[in-house]
């Protein structure tokens, strides 16, 4: 598993303030979310702009598009829309026991949801690819996420690699101990789930003991419960200007999408 998703590039987008990027990404996803059903042209425009941004970031569209397929399984959740929405019937699918009738309205609504979602995922991918994790955490802090959560997230990220490595080693050990003659995984389903449970329990104890060692190490370095950070970048005039411009652009885009752009 690749835990470090940041891609080091020398670009304007990488250099931009993380808070600014975070807010613009959320605004971008929000404006997509608010578009009416069938706004395919508006979604396409948003996508082209996003792809242009990936080029400016020197990451390129293909990398971002490839990473966006993680959300694909969820598409299944919207498929029923094609058949349950009333509207012009497009055709029947005979399943033997019953017949499903697809409607044009349902199909348009389904496609709207899937395309909106797909472009939104790509926007989030670009944010992750172009922003270092500590900067993202700083952005959360600036956006008034409770201090304890910011601290927990930054600790979590620090120990993610350690604990996922530990988990991977434990799974390798399980695979080495277990024969699976016909590829069935061996053992009953209940037994397999219980083995996983014991592994979770064992990992918990290891993690807990690690957290005690971490705490002792922090205490010996003078930790008193408050997290301090040396780097505090200023959110200055240039950032406010960029944020304002982005807000106006997204607002104009939204109004245009509602009033003037053709819809299916």
């Amino acid at each position: 598993m690749d835990l470090d998703r940041y891609l080091e590039r020398d670009s304007r987008i990488h250099a931009a303030d993380a808070r600014l990027k975070f807010l613009i990404t959320i605004g971008f996803i929000l404006s997509l979310s608010l578009l009416p059903i069938g706004s395919f042209l508006a979604i396409a425009i948003a996508w082209v702009v996003l792809m242009a941004a990936t080029v400016v970031a020197r990451i390129g569209p293909s990398r971002v598009v490839r990473a966006s397929f993680v959300a694909l399984p969820f598409v299944a959740a919207a498929i029923p829309l094609i058949f349950t929405k009333s509207g012009d019937p497009l055709g029947d699918i005979n399943l033997g026991l019953f017949t499903l009738t697809a409607s044009g309205e349902g199909l348009i609504q389904f496609a709207t949801i899937v395309f909106k979602s797909w472009v939104s995922v790509q926007a989030a991918v670009l944010l992750t690819f172009s922003t270092r994790f500590p900067d993202l955490v700083e952005a959360l802090r600036a956006l008034r996420v409770p201090a304890i959560i910011v601290a927990v997230i930054s600790f979590m990220y620090r120990y993610l690699a350690v604990l996922t490595d530990e988990a991977t080693r434990m799974m390798r050990a399980r695979a080495a101990r277990s024969a699976s003659p016909d590829g069935s995984g061996g053992g009953s389903l209940l037994w397999r789930a219980r083995v996983v449970g014991s592994m979770v329990g064992s990992l918990f104890i290891r993690a807990y003991e690690r957290s005690e060692r971490v705490y002792a190490a922090m205490q010996s370095r003078g930790f008193d419960g408050t997290m301090r950070t040396l780097r505090r970048r200023q959110f200055g005039g240039a950032q406010w200007l960029a944020l304002g411009l982005a807000a106006v652009t997204l607002g104009v885009f939204e109004v245009t999408g509602h009033l003037w752009l053709p819809r299916a």
């Binding site: 600790f155 993610l160 807990y208 957290s211």
Partner: peptide
Amino acid sequence: LDERAIPLMGVMAAFIFAGQMFNFAVP
């Protein structure tokens, strides 16, 4: 929780994340 809460919860969050990796084959 006292000030040990932060390292404890941080490592525990990583534990839950890693614990979700343990999988078992389902037909």
